[in-house]
């Protein structure tokens, strides 16, 4: 039989847990609901498909949507080969385990640095030193540096899950190292690479501080080539500009709602992709 004191204690702990779960859930639901209620009424086809004009007073976020897409694509095109390549080198080739350890530790630290620091370094290095000025390219390069550790580490971790016995089997057949990696090791860890990339896309979408300094605030409608060389606001930066500098809170919340829907979609697809590959491989 439990003593009264013990019963009260268990009851109290249970209540405390319910309360903390409840508070967390309420906050999340409140946040999502608030953004949607405030934002969705402001989303219109016109907002999504036009560019802003000070003359007609029109507000449209098409340039910002395009800028976001350009930045995401450019960043991924650069960061995937770099990150995956570095991961392959560190896990499969590098002999000096001490240096590998230092690099891994540095990468982990890098991924925890506040993004505004990346922004200011990116501004000094890409915009000033390399002469990119304020442009989507400078912004994308800054995001490359920011996401490189994530892509590298997730790839490394999934390379490590490929059993050594696969490598042994392939080496035993007389395959060279690169062939073993390309045909046996890499196919075994695509899921990790893809998951890392999707997570990176999420981070790129949500990034504003690093882009404020490097990519600028312009809302010009450009193709990808012109866009990369000229300044432009991503959705998050546009949100900041509309809310803080023009007082257009309705527009800001519309953008916020769009960003939240995109983030949800990205997380969903990350989950789907990893589930798909989990089913495909059994080791």
């Amino acid at each position: 039989m439990l003593s009264k004191k013990r019963k009260a204690y268990i009851g109290g702990m249970k209540a405390a847990m319910y309360i903390s779960t409840g508070i967390t859930a309420v906050f999340v639901i409140f946040l999502v609901a608030y953004v949607f209620i405030k934002g969705i009424p402001n989303i219109s086809w016109e907002l999504l498909s036009t560019k802003p004009s000070y003359i007609s007073g029109n507000i449209g976020i098409l340039p910002d949507i395009l800028n976001t897409i350009y930045i995401v694509l450019t960043t991924l095109i650069v960061v995937i080969p770099l990150g995956v390549g570095a991961a392959i080198y560190l896990t499969e080739y590098a002999k000096n385990k001490k240096i590998v350890g230092i690099i891994e530790y540095a990468a982990e630290t890098l991924s925890g640095i506040p993004s505004i620091i990346y922004g200011s370094v990116g501004m000094l290095f890409f915009c000033e030193f390399l002469g990119f000025r304020k442009s989507l390219l400078a912004g994308a390069m800054t995001l490359v540096i920011m996401n490189l550790p994530t892509v590298m580490r997730t790839t490394q971790e999934s390379l490590k899950t490929v059993p050594q016995s696969y490598r042994d089997g392939a080496f035993g057949l007389g395959a060279g190292k690169w062939r073993v990696i390309r045909k046996v090791v890499l196919p075994g860890c695509v899921d990790g690479v893809i998951t890392g990339c999707i997570l990176s896309v999420g981070r790129i979408l949500g990034e504003s501080a690093a882009l404020l300094f490097t990519a600028g605030f312009a809302h010009a409608l450009n193709g990808i080539i012109d866009g990369l060389s000229s300044p432009g606001a991503s959705l998050t930066v546009a949100l900041y500009v509309y809310a803080k500098e023009q007082g257009e809170f309705g527009i800001a919340f519309a953008i916020a709602a769009i960003l939240m829907i995109l983030t949800l979609l990205i997380n969903l697809s990350a989950a789907l992709v990893s589930r798909y590959f989990m089913k495909k491989r059994k080791f």
Binding site: P163, S165, Y166, D168, G169, A170, F171, G172, L173, G174, V184, P187, G188, R281, K282, F283
Partner: peptide, 15 residues
Amino acid sequence: RREIGMVFQKPNPFP
């Protein structure tokens, strides 16, 4: 290694 092949303790077919 092509001329001297190997079979391992645990079956290790590729996935």
